[in-house]
Structure formats: C-alpha cells, structure tokens
Nucleic acid binder design. Structure first.
Lengths: 227, 227
DNA sequence: TGATGTGAACCCATTCACAGCC
DNA sequence: GGCTGTGAATGGGTTCACATCA
C-alpha cells in the first residue's frame, strides 16, 4: 500500500528480482520505456502470473491496461534490494578466481565495490588487481571495520575455505558468497550462498544422462526460455 | 525397489545430490566408512529427514540402526547423476573467466573434462590454457561432434553470450551453464543453468539491508550451517 | 479494451512422526 | 536401541482466473 513498512518478500521472489532488474536495465538501454508482465515473463523465461505476483510484493507500481514504467520499476526494485547504496565487498583469496572477480567490471555499476582483496600468501600482498592492492588476511578485520564491509566472497581453494569463513565471521561479516568447492560452517546468523562450477555441471549431467536414456527428464517447463 | 528402471527424482533433490557427494568424498578421504543421515544433514546444513528422503529416491541403500556405507552410497549417487562416465564440456570464451575455468583442476576428478575452449578472437586461437589449445568458435560444431560434447559453458562477456548460446545450440549441445551476466534464449529442449556473481550479491544485499534495518529478515532456518 | 493485482486452487517440497528392520 | 524409509501433514511457491481499474 504505502511505502516504508516493507513486508517480507518470499525468498523465491527475492531471488528473481535481480533477474528482472537486469532485464529492465537492458530494455532501458534500448530505449524502451514501458513493459508488460507478459513481455517481462517472456524475456525472463518464467510465467507472467509469477512476474506480476513477484512485482506486487513491492507494491502496486504497474498501470492496469498499460504495464510497468521501466525507469520507475527499476528504481523500486533497486530500492527493495538495497541497491540505492553501494555495498563494499571483500574478497578472500587472490588466486585465479579472486583475480577474475576483482577484475570483473560488472560490480561497480550494479551496486557493489571491491573494498579489499586479502590472501594468506605474503608474496602476493602488495600487488594490485582490479585497482585494489592485495593485503594480508590478518588485515581483514581492519578493512571490514574501516570500510563497513558486510559482504564477503570466498575465492580460496577448498582447503582454505573454512579458514576464510572463520576469518570473515570474526571480522563481523554477515553474508558470504562461497565460490570454494566445499560446504562451509558458519554461525546461524550468517547467510551463505554458494556458487559451484562442478556442482552445477553435475546437476546438468543428471539431465543429460536422462536425455541420453531417452527418458525425457521433464517437459522442461518454466526453466526453458523460448528463442 | 530394484535397480534399473530409475524413477524420476524431484528437481530439488537432484540439486542436492552433488552436495552430498562432495561431503561423502571428504569423509571418505578422512577414512570414515559409515555415516548417518543426522551427521550428513549436519555437514550439509539441512534437515535429516530431507537427507533420508533425498537418498531414498535412489533406492534403499542405508542400513537401519547403522547408517549408510560411504563407499557404496558414493557409488550410487555417482551412478544416478551419470558420473560413472566422464562428460566432455566445451567452454566458449577464453577471457579471464574462461581461462580460470579451463585451469580449474577440480573438473577431472569430478566426472568432467574440458574437450575444448573456443573464442571468436583469432589472436587468442592457438594458445594453450589448462592443457587445451584454444580454437576458433567456427570449429565448435566439429569439436562437439567429434568429441560427443553435450554440455557447454558460456564464459563470454554479456554482449556475446546470446551468440555463444546460438552456436552451442546449433552444435547440438543439450545443456548450458551460463556464466555471462545476461539471460539467454534457447529452444525449450535445451536446459540452462545460470551462475551470476552480481545476481548472487544482489540477493545477499537484500538480506543485509533487512538486517541493517533490524528487521531480522528471516529466522535463518535451514540455510544456516552450525559451526 | 487490455493489463494489473490478487484470492483461491493447485502442486511440489519440506518436515513430522512412526513403523520397520538391523 | 538406533537409524532408515516413508506415508501423512504441513507449508511455500506457482499458476489460474477474474475482479478491478486506467
């Protein structure tokens, strides 16, 4: 209804908002100004009713008979996700992956900035990647404190991931994005999301295997985007 | 009940099997031989009943009053996921990310091998990364055909991701893992999974924002692993 | 008229709770 | 006694279908 006392949005819906946001940004870049739930659904590869329901959690920002104003909706989603501020993140691990992440330009424009990169290896400390100087992991707490970092990224080998997680937790980080191929343990108040190449491939493997057995794993609903 | 006519396993359960598999591998490396659903649940950060239900989709491979034999269960999960064969994958895009992926050693031991890396940029063709020579994207169909590749990984910039997807689809690839920060369109029979740094961070951002507003986003059930 | 917003129905996933078996 | 395997209960998420409104 009104504006501020934001009700809680279902987890599944929250996970889709960034996708809508990205699509809206692309549409906006092409000069489009209005979009309907149908179009948005098409582009996102989901059901139109789902799009409307998801967006309705933000409030009633559409216009019946017309659709959604892209700029306004973009603003509302960003606000809801907390992207009207820039979130400093700290990356633990300055190996291949850590460097790729620090160099990844897509963060600045999307509400994030790399406040620091740390590593255990003293020989790496001092080098500059992605415009940030690598510092020693013992400085993590300082960096987190002084730059108000609340999100950490683990980009270490599996063997050091738990250690990295412990450092992050001790430094007061509340959310962790874990790229290491291992499950980390953290206190219950810390939120963890995991991104794992091998794991994703193994899931795909299952369905490829089904396919090769001719079992048509599933009618491929919802997930499939049309060309 | 018996063995071969594998019933279809719920998508959510399939997505967790690789996680169990990894944990089992770690336990096995430590010399453990038996594990209970309780222990496994603890390590995976999920509910024990969920573990049992997930594993029961594979068949009845536990022993009441005892638990699961790690080696045997490992074998069964691998077989179910199709990991008793090695799946060749092709990587499209030989930039930072593509190189990191090709160099990532974790694939070989997990049922995958990099059958090829392709790029549009002729100046990159010929270099060797991760033991594989980079070839031109026009060779994609040949590689896919001759090496029976059915899984493709998109590691291009967003601007070229759709093009990469089109190439993969034309080459007959059935499953795509998309690392590019953009939603790709594919025919319905192609299965896509998406891995996206910025998107994951934006989801975390929402919950950090809630936290900072003191709204305790959610009791942090299920997802949180205990220390 | 055309598209949103939303109760209600449906469906899938999670969790409970206990019978069954080692 | 202890732990698995699983029906039954619950809960969340998705989809339907339509009242509502520009």
């Amino acid at each position: 209804m009104t504006d501020f006392p934001r009700r809680r949005i279902p987890e599944a819906a929250v996970a889709r908002l960034p996708m809508y946001l990205r699509i809206l940004t692309e549409l906006s870049a092409e000069g489009t100004q209005q979009v309907s739930s149908d179009q948005l659904a098409q582009l996102a590869g989901v059901n139109a009713a789902k799009v409307r329901k998801d967006l309705s959690y933000l409030g009633s920002y559409g216009t019946r008979g017309v659709g959604y104003d892209i700029e306004y909706l973009t603003y509302q989603i960003q606000r809801e996700l907390g992207l009207n501020q820039s979130w400093p993140v700290v990356i633990v691990g300055a190996g291949n992956l850590g460097q790729a992440l620090a160099n990844y330009g897509g963060l600045g424009g999307r509400g994030f900035n790399v406040a620091g990169v740390v590593d255990v290896d003293p020989s790496k400390v001092g080098s500059v990647i992605g415009g940030v100087r690598i510092r020693h992991i013992d400085d993590l707490a300082n960096i987190a404190q002084s730059k108000s970092v609340s999100i950490g990224v683990i980009a270490t080998p599996a063997t050091h991931a738990q250690e990295a997680a412990d450092h992050l937790v001790r430094a007061g980080i509340g959310s962790i994005l874990n790229f290491a191929p291992v499950v980390i343990s953290v206190p219950r108040h810390v939120r963890v999301r995991k991104v794992d190449l091998a794991l994703e491939l193994q899931i795909l493997s299952y369905y490829e295997q089904m396919r090769s057995k001719g079992l048509r794993a599933v009618p491929d609903v919802a997930d499939g985007q049309t060309a």
